[in-house]
Design a protein around this nucleic acid. Structure first.
Lengths: 343, 343
DNA sequence: CGCCGCCGCTGGCACGTTTTAATAAACGCC
DNA sequence: GGCGTTTATTAAAACGTGCCAGCGGCGGCG
């Protein structure tokens, strides 16, 4: 009823005039409520409600020198892994009163740079980023501007920076170890570009497991490198393997999307999983459990990754002196399902 | 080399001083380049590069009265359907120089309202929203503030508003028609809450198709309503159906997530798809094609939905007088795969 | 030659908020 | 009752940009 559909926007001044106080007092009500007398405060709050006042974020940012938004730059928003991370970021940021500006690079360096520019223009309070490559120079543009950066799913190489990651070497070792435990002797590793750190680390882990089992990684592990990490690439990898001289005993995919595509390709070719070939993916996305032959996978705490990264970032922003930089490394976890069931 | 890692931020004034012009000219270079002499312009641009100047978005917003960000509020960022929409929005917005602030409501009214508040504070230029219910009142808070709103995946009920949607009735008719064409006489419709418009419309379409085939919808269509629309709910629906007196000839799921879960549940129970039961989903998410029995589905132009909605929104913002409100309705498309293959 | 119009640039104000120093009032204390 | 102290509020000065009015200079035209 009294909710003002004024049409135009109402400023702090009009609230002040209406409430019979100065603009400064209204500002105090908004930002330091304990500084203002209870009676005055409730009167101002009443007027705020009546007039439908909403703080002008830009004016606030301009004056305060920093905004209440954070930037989130991911490689592929189509990948459920990143979606889960984003959900965690969004929830935590929202709880702390921050908004999230989303940037999707699609692995494209140009797009990533454009997004970083937008973040810089918006004067985001901080930046969460899963870097698409190892080049740290690009981030300096942001950091030089005094914007905190937290690396997500990527360990920081420098001590003055926070990062939240999951140990991909352990994950690779666990996955390959699980396959070896199941009786496999000849493994294949189906991966995206090995320039991607995650892929490389998972391969290293697999090699470690093979060596630990007394086998020679050079001969016991066939590496199939694909240009992409989606289901289509996985299906093509299946064709490649099926058309090859000898099918491996077990296959480790760097990614569940690859694994799902591969699984479909194998089944279409009449290869039974896990009877003929065992299969394990990585990430444990929701669809891994729902596929017809449910997919064994390596679970990562994705949602938590997003939450913790956000928490770390905002702690660094809000408590710059007491903040201690941390490089957090989670451990992944094996989820065994049908696709590696021993028969 | 000369790229300034000044540590602090550099303003338009410093650029002006360094280039030997007035701040107004620098502003012109940024916003109306044709207004300034070529020689002066290139000199200013040079200085901008040298000093690493980045426009302060908040100051710009404050003065100009509007920002270069749009808000995107979706119901479930975990659903690939919305992810694809978001990708379209993000791409188009990015091309037009806009940033996207993401809000994920998870179907929670409180979260949605909190997000809308953040959008209002940030003074987003416009808002894209997939409303979680039919209540239009909540959007007035935004609209009263002079912010344009475009409805996504939801037809507008009022002529003064743009919307981009896909005809769910046609989609439902197509899906059920396809099942009937395949020889099915007894259908089941597995759906989320029927309070959701999309679910209701798809059911109506299915009923139309059944009636058109000369059957009685009341007896030929069994409706299984689940509280959620994810794979878990689908699997539970499978248990329900398998445990029932008589399996239908064919099943239509309101959603691919439901269908994938259902598929898994059926296969586990020894029901062969499509031999015993045909199955069709809705949305044609990527995983539909990659599942072991590839899933027939109804394809929606998701990415395009996001792009067009963004285009409409920004046209409304940038050309308020020439802009004509449109309620765009796309037609969905049948994608027949193994799960409905006639045998 | 003088006037006009146009081009290119300048200077200054306004946007809405936060913050600081200053003011006014209330209060306890010797 | 004067005095220092605390508390509640105010006035004004920023923050960086966009926009508008205006000004000098120059060329064309009468």
């Amino acid at each position: 009823m009294t909710t003002g559909s004024t049409g135009s926007t109402v400023s702090i001044k009009e609230v002040a005039a209406q409430a019979g106080v100065s603009p400064g007092t209204v500002s105090n009500v908004l930002n330091r409520p304990q500084k203002v007398a209870a009676e005055t405060r409730s009167r101002v709050e009443q007027v705020i409600r009546e007039l439908g006042f909403v703080r002008h974020g830009s004016a606030s940012t301009l004056r305060a020198g920093h905004s209440r938004t954070i930037g989130l730059s991911v490689i592929d928003i189509g990948n459920p892994f990143f979606t889960d991370v984003a959900a965690g970021v969004e929830d935590m940021a929202s709880e702390l009163g921050y908004a999230v500006i989303l940037g999707n690079s699609s692995g494209d360096r140009v797009k990533e740079e454009r997004n970083l520019r937008v973040f810089a223009e918006q004067r985001v309070r901080g930046l969460l980023i899963t870097p698409s490559d190892e080049d740290p120079g690009r981030l300096d543009v942001i950091r030089d501007r005094g914007i905190s950066v937290v690396l997500v799913d990527h360990p920081a190489h420098r001590p003055d920076q926070c990062s939240v990651a999951v140990n991909d070497i352990t994950g690779g070792r666990t996955a390959a170890g699980h396959l070896l435990d199941g009786g496999a002797a000849r493994l294949a590793f189906v991966t995206g570009p090995l320039t991607i750190r995650q892929c490389l680390d998972r391969m290293s882990g697999a090699e470690q497991a093979i060596a630990a089992a007394g086998l020679d990684p050079a001969s016991a592990l066939e590496v199939v490198e694909m240009p992409a990490m989606n289901a289509r690439a996985g299906q093509r990898a299946a064709e490649k393997l099926v058309g090859g001289p000898l099918l491996p005993d077990a296959i480790f995919c760097a990614n569940d999307l690859l694994a799902l595509g591969l699984l479909r390709g194998l089944l279409q070719a009449g290869v039974r999983v896990p009877h003929d070939v065992a299969l394990i993916g990585y990430d444990d996305i929701d669809f891994a459990a729902a596929s017809a032959v449910s997919l064994s996978s390596i679970r990562q705490p994705t949602y938590k990754l997003g939450r913790i990264a956000t928490e770390l970032l905002l702690d660094e922003c809000d408590n710059p002196e007491s903040h201690a930089h941390q490089q957090i490394m989670f451990q992944p976890e094996l989820v065994a399902r049908e696709s590696t069931r021993r028969e």
